[in-house]
Design a protein around this nucleic acid. Sequence first.
RNA 1: GGCCCCGUGGUCAAGCGGUUAAGACAUCGCCCUUUCACGGCGGAGACAUGGGUUCGAUUCCCGUCGGGGUCACCA
Length: 549
Amino acid sequence: MDYKDLADLIFPNAKDISYYEEKYPERNLPEGAIVSRFAPSPTGFVHIGGLYQALVAREATKRTGGIFFLRVEDTDQKREVENGVTGIVNSLQDFDMAPDEGMITETEEIGNYGPYKQSLRKDIYQAYAKYLLAQGKAYPCFCTSEEVEEIRKKQETAKVRPGYYGIWAKCRNFTIEEAAEKIKNGEKCIIRFKSHGKEYNKIKHHDIIKGNVNFPENDQDIVIIKADGLPTYHFAHAVDDHLMRTTHVIRSDEWLSSVPLHLQLFYELGFKAPKYAHIAPIMKNDNGNKRKLSKRKDPEAAVNYYKEEGIPPLAVKEYLLNIANSNFENWRRANPDKSIDEFDFQLNKMSVSGALFDMVKLLDIGKTVISKMSAEEVYEKALEWAKEYDKELVEMLENKEYSLKVLGIERGNKKPRKDISKWSEVKNNIIYMYDDKFLNTDISYDYAKINDKEEINKILKLYIEEYFDIDHDKETWFNKIKDLAEKTGYAREVKEYKKEPEKWPGHVGDISTVIRVALTGRQNTPDMYEIMQVLGKESVIKRLEKARS
RNA sequence: GGCCCCGUGGUCAAGCGGUUAAGACAUCGCCCUUUCACGGCGGAGACAUGGGUUCGAUUCCCGUCGGGGUCACCA
């Protein structure tokens, strides 16, 4: 009896690996094309760090004529969540980052290198496990989890490195016959990789992001096939990324220390190892300590948060890209209208350590992104958001023609307004422009400097009766307000007032403020002339009358 | 604890042997302006620390301190 017989005994039905090698040939892509992937577990909502990884992987492939695919790593059924794949697919969709290959719904996929869901690739993993077994590079292990735990405890008291390796790896020393005997007796086994690494040997590895790193060789006999017949991450990674012809493995840097193991696996399997790029995670400041954004503690860790808040996906992507390649923002300034896919993204320019998440900066980018949109676009996007999250906004936006005018105020010029950073701010930004909201609610007017009721009434009365005409052009319109200021004893020009402030009780600006507050209930608004034009004569008068009463 | 990685203003970060140590966000002031936003100008604000190496270290080496990661039949 030899290793091959033992392999046949354990996996009698597994195919020869040549079958898969032929089925998934090298990809025919242009020179230098990068094939990379996003490979999440369907364990709940997508984390912002996951989106970040996906973005980086996607951008890395984009201009090389490569492939960005989505592989679902569902080998741990315990952690699996219902409709997990759908959640992932939809999140990528929301950010306009649909993969070139891989899962496209809970069960469907596109591409020739599938299945892209690991639980469906059981046969493949077993074929490769059998292949290792047949060469004596893997062996069945009959230890129960209790036994493994016991070994760990012994190692702890002996103060040696924990793990299943060397003298501690008791199943590795069974003879083929002994192992076969146990299997024939129906003993349950898992499959372990038989490592020939030595801890005292150092290996040099070059990571695209982290640079040169030195590690001890792996000497752990890690499990490759679990009791349920599914592979562990390590083994699935090697098999899948080989068969899917991944050129660049872009993943979170928590995997960095597994590189020696992975390299060893690729080598023993006879695969060409991919290049690795380990991304530093996005962090959060927690009482002076940096920690990863946590699903439990931080709402902003979930990508759905951004959708709910109405932060434009493009803003999120630009922010993330900014963290990834800090020259992005310079590029963006020079190319304000180009697609981010035209940016020359470089993996090796990524920061080695994790950035603290900065919501303020994200929202600033949101402002800029929205300020570049047309009124029509703002309208559509805000409405789309509102349909899901804000019924009142939907009602307001029902009058499309009017809403477009409202949203169009000071929009489209070379210095557009930047007052909306996310869709959830829209309502508060424009609600006073809607008569049915404004006229029917109690407004607490605060006129700032002028607060004498009589005075205010006088100003408003005069304005309505003698100075306001909706048909005036802007210059005439404002001259009329200046006239009104003069008439009521205020300085006509702010500059003159500032020269001799004791001469007047105030200036045109104060008169404007009275009108503005009466008109909108607010001291700060966009251009008042435009507001009046949008409101129309009737509404302006109604509003001013309302303020007087 | 072992192993690995990292340490430039509040944050993201250029620079990597000789620089007035960029830029962005935030902050403060001024200007523009009927308010706000935008925009313009300016201010404050940093090379963790101790030793080397060197004519010269933010840049190179070592220690210290600080931060992060990893040591599963989880990914």
